[in-house]
Simulated scan of single mutants.
Amino acid sequence: MAGRAGQQLVFLFDENMPARLAHALRGLGERCVHVGDPGIGLNNTPDEAVLAYAGERGWIYVGRDHRILHRPHERAVLKQWEMGAFFLNQSLNKSLCSITTALFRNWPEMKRVAASQPRPSLYLIRETSVRALPRRRLGNEDEHGRRQQG
């Protein structure tokens, strides 16, 4: 499935996501990488740098950390690179089984929206569905957290 301008979709799993899950999807032929994979080496890297790494490559971010949406400097990276990002619903953060079940159940929809929806875009992965988050979650602040006009 192609993303922007025919580019293949690649999903980057943050270190707060199970590496085994990204590897399992890759074993099934999906284009998934984990921040800790050889050649990536982004373990223990600030979220802002992980997001920039994915954004520079046109990759889709997958993670658990909703706090990214509350940090102006991290939201700015999502906007700057016009990224697609998926965040696990907090109720799924309980076990590897619930995370795996939700991700596999929603994978076809995640690929569809990542390939077809304009970016920047934010999505919440729920137990049985993927829900778009309002673009206003990206905020309208500058890098210092001040509200911009317009």
Rank of each mutant, 00 (worst) to 15 (best):
A2F: 14
G3F: 13
R4N: 02
A5N: 11
Q8A: 15
V10W: 02
F11S: 03
L12R: 04
F13V: 01
D14Y: 03
M17V: 09
A19R: 01
L21R: 12
A24G: 11
L25I: 00
G29T: 05
G29M: 01
E30M: 08
E30F: 14
C32D: 09
V33S: 13
V33H: 10
V33M: 13
H34M: 04
H34W: 14
V35I: 12
G36Q: 10
G36L: 04
G36E: 13
G39D: 06
I40S: 14
G41K: 00
N43D: 09
N44E: 12
N44H: 13
T45Q: 08
P46S: 00
D47R: 13
D47W: 09
D47V: 12
A49I: 15
L51R: 13
A52M: 06
A52T: 07
A52K: 10
Y53T: 12
Y53N: 14
A54F: 04
G55S: 10
E56F: 03
E56V: 03
I60N: 05
Y61F: 15
G63W: 05
G63Y: 04
D65F: 00
D65T: 02
D65M: 05
L69G: 01
H70C: 02
R71V: 15
P72A: 06
R75C: 14
A76N: 12
L78G: 09
K79E: 15
K79P: 04
Q80R: 15
E82C: 04
G84R: 03
G84K: 11
A85I: 00
A85F: 00
F86L: 11
L88N: 01
N89P: 02
Q90N: 07
Q90K: 09
Q90S: 11
L92R: 07
K94Y: 14
S95F: 01
L96P: 01
L96D: 04
C97M: 15
S98E: 15
T100Q: 08
A102R: 00
F104E: 06
N106M: 09
W107Y: 06
P108M: 06
P108V: 14
M110P: 11
M110N: 12
A114G: 12
A114K: 04
A115W: 09
S116F: 06
R119T: 14
P120H: 02
S121I: 10
L122R: 11
L122T: 05
Y123H: 14
Y123Q: 08
R126N: 12
E127W: 06
E127K: 11
T128F: 14
T128P: 07
S129W: 08
S129Y: 08
S129V: 03
V130R: 02
R131Y: 07
R131Q: 15
L133D: 09
R135V: 02
R137S: 13
G139I: 00
G139D: 07
G139R: 03
N140R: 03
N140V: 04
N140Y: 04
E141C: 07
D142E: 06
D142G: 06
D142H: 13
E143M: 06
H144F: 13
R146H: 08
R147H: 08
Q148V: 01
Q148M: 07
